[in-house]
Design a protein around this nucleic acid. Structure first.
Length: 578
DNA sequence: TTGCAGTCAATATC
DNA sequence: GATATTGACTGCAA
């Protein structure tokens, strides 16, 4: 079915995602008949710029089949060529790299009209993929990732941002507040988009996210590490900026050319139905109709979801349904929201930790990644992980950080106990008096049929006293009413202090060995990688207590609830309440 | 089945 | 117009 659809209704190259391009690459490979010849021709100046990657790509291709790690199921259909004897990742790279290579000769439109000119920036930018693999062409990016030492993800992104901003390639939020910075921003900044497309193979949004909220190395999967390895390689490339500048110039040139041609050909373009120019921003009507409108949650809905999250980071399906019903949202939307929120909160916490750490360790290039790694070798008592693992001394007051869980989790919702629901306090003042008697309880959604706890009319913003989830704020007060076993848990959940030994802690502990064992010591490749990446690692692991406390609290809250709930669901699901 | 990692892409924000 | 945000999706693992 997919094949039929693809053959009858191919999407233009410029509209295809990397994954979507894969089948066309495969078809092209198949059409070429010989994988070694399937290196897609680079155009003009781009060719030189992609020389390295093309060379390595050819190396890879000549090894054999261009299978894809991401699509192992289809690798059999790829080509009869044998798998590379060197390593599977060689062939893995080939297609992955291919997808990022220019493909001007591939015509995906049915009428044979090349789509390439329709969006030169995309195709051209992708054409370059100037992975500085020179000297390492035998290594695929996956190999590099797999064998790379632990990288300082935060440091890398910091340096990338510095390099880009120093060269006026991008301008970042941190600079936005400065008018001077805005003035300094180039008129046509190269930006995250081109950097992402050419260097990382990611979209602008992903790049932005990645640069702003890098995850620690030890928490990244192999795939997740890839962009950082690419960034590191790019940083190591002495001509990185020049290449990007060239790219920028080419893109601008192509843009001007396209614009010029589009103006002169506007008539024909408009009249062309088959060759609809998808990339011109004039999305075709049929496609537009097929598009699902993006769901945008209203602030009150978000608030309600956040409150629900604070009660139950891992709501049961029934709770989700209740939430969806009462917020008039799709169940999948609520599910997605919880997934995304949990995921993003974890990253927020990491960033906070970094920032707190960097503040207390000015001038240090330390990173949580590095810290966690060091902690594996350091004494438990004072190391970051040791602290994390052990948590704060029992009963030790958290002091001013008591409300940082919420700051980390919702940025504005106060602490888990008294301050846990301070967000929107003013708007909710009335609610407290009027509806306090009927607090929202996530669990109660499951156990009762109470209505009116979450009223979030999608069309209009309700008055303060009727805002959805408002009654949630009273929930913590009821949380200590559980039985003895739950009481302790609830208390810890509410205070965010005790019982810190949470999943997060154990996760971190378990992650330590993995990070410390990343490189294969003694391996020549590993050694060369060490020199290749040349990352610096600071030696300090002190003063991470404050930042780790935040992390502890949030992790504690989220995971204790989840674990206890799971345990409870096995035994006394009905009685379990917070 | 559930949760997560990673990512895209539409949209909001600056 | 560039960047930030975020809902949705895919693939994977437990």
């Amino acid at each position: 079915g997919s094949v039929s659809d693809m053959l009858s209704r191919p999407k233009p190259w410029s509209k295809l995602t990397q994954k979507g391009r894969e089948p066309f690459i495969r078809m092209q490979l198949w059409l070429n008949g010989e994988l070694g010849q399937c290196v897609l021709p680079a155009q003009g100046q781009q060719q030189g710029q992609v020389l390295h990657s093309v060379t390595s790509l050819q190396d890879s291709l000549q090894q054999g089949c261009a299978s894809s790690e991401s699509t192992p199921k289809t690798s059999a259909s790829c080509s009869p060529a044998p798998e590379s004897p060197m390593s599977s990742s060689e062939s893995v790279k080939s297609l992955t790299e291919l997808v990022q290579q220019p493909c001007p000769t591939i015509e995906t439109s049915k009428d044979g009209k090349s789509q390439e000119p329709s969006e030169p920036p995309a195709s051209e930018s992708q054409s370059t993929t100037p992975l500085p693999l020179s000297g390492h062409s035998a290594l695929s990016i996956q190999e590099l990732v797999a064998m790379s030492p632990e990288l300082d993800t935060y440091g890398i992104t910091k340096r990338v941002k510095e390099v880009l901003t120093d060269n006026n390639l991008v301008w970042l939020t941190s600079l936005k507040s400065s008018r001077r910075a805005r003035k300094c921003a180039p008129n046509s900044a190269l930006g995250q988009r081109l950097f992402g497309e050419t260097i990382l193979g990611l979209t602008q949004g992903s790049v932005s996210d990645l640069l702003a909220r890098p995850k620690p190395w030890h928490k990244l999967s192999l795939k997740g590490r890839e962009p950082f390895v690419r960034m590191q390689l790019w940083l190591n490339d002495p001509n990185n900026v020049e290449k990007l500048m060239d790219m920028k110039r080419m893109e601008k040139k192509a843009y001007m050319k396209r614009r010029h041609s589009s103006v002169s050909d506007s008539q024909s373009c408009e009249s062309s139905s088959a060759g609809i120019d998808y990339s011109q921003g004039a999305s075709p009507q049929p496609q537009h109709q097929l598009k699902k409108p993006r769901v945008v949650l209203a602030p009150e809905e978000k608030e309600a979801l956040k409150r629900a999250y604070q009660q139950k980071p891992y709501p049961s399906p029934k709770t989700i349904e209740e939430l969806a019903t009462q917020l008039n949202l799709k169940t999948s939307t609520v599910i997605n929201w919880f997934h995304n929120y949990r995921s993003r909160i974890r990253r927020e916490l990491f960033i906070e930790e970094i920032q707190a750490g960097s503040q207390s360790q000015a001038g240090s290039s330390d990173s949580p990644s590095a810290r966690s790694s060091r902690a594996a070798h350091s004494s438990e008592g004072d190391s970051c992980d040791g602290v994390d693992a052990e948590g704060p001394p029992e009963g030790k007051p958290s002091g001013p950080e008591a409300d940082e869980y919420s700051n980390a989790t919702t940025k504005s919702q106060g602490g888990p106990a008294e301050s846990a629901f301070e967000a929107g306090e003013e708007a909710l003042q009335g609610a407290r008096s009027s509806e306090k008697a009927e607090p929202f309880q996530a669990e109660s959604l499951e156990d009762t049929d109470d209505e009116g706890r979450l009223r979030a009319p999608r069309q209009s913003s309700p008055p303060a006293s009727q805002r959805p989830g408002e009654a949630l704020e009273t929930l913590p007060n009821s949380a200590t009413e559980g039985d003895a076993s739950t009481s302790a848990a609830s208390t810890s959940v509410l205070t965010g202090e005790s019982s810190y030994k949470s999943k997060e802690s154990s996760e971190k502990i378990s992650s330590v060995p993995s990070t410390s064992s990343t490189p294969a010591t003694g391996s020549q490749k590993a050694n060369s990688l060490q020199s290749l990446f040349g990352f610096s690692e600071a030696a300090s692991s002190r003063n991470t207590r404050d930042s780790s406390l935040r992390k502890k609290k949030a992790a504690n809250l989220n995971n204790i609830i989840h674990r206890l709930e799971k345990a409870a669901s096995r035994e006394e699901a009905v009685e379990w309440e917070f």
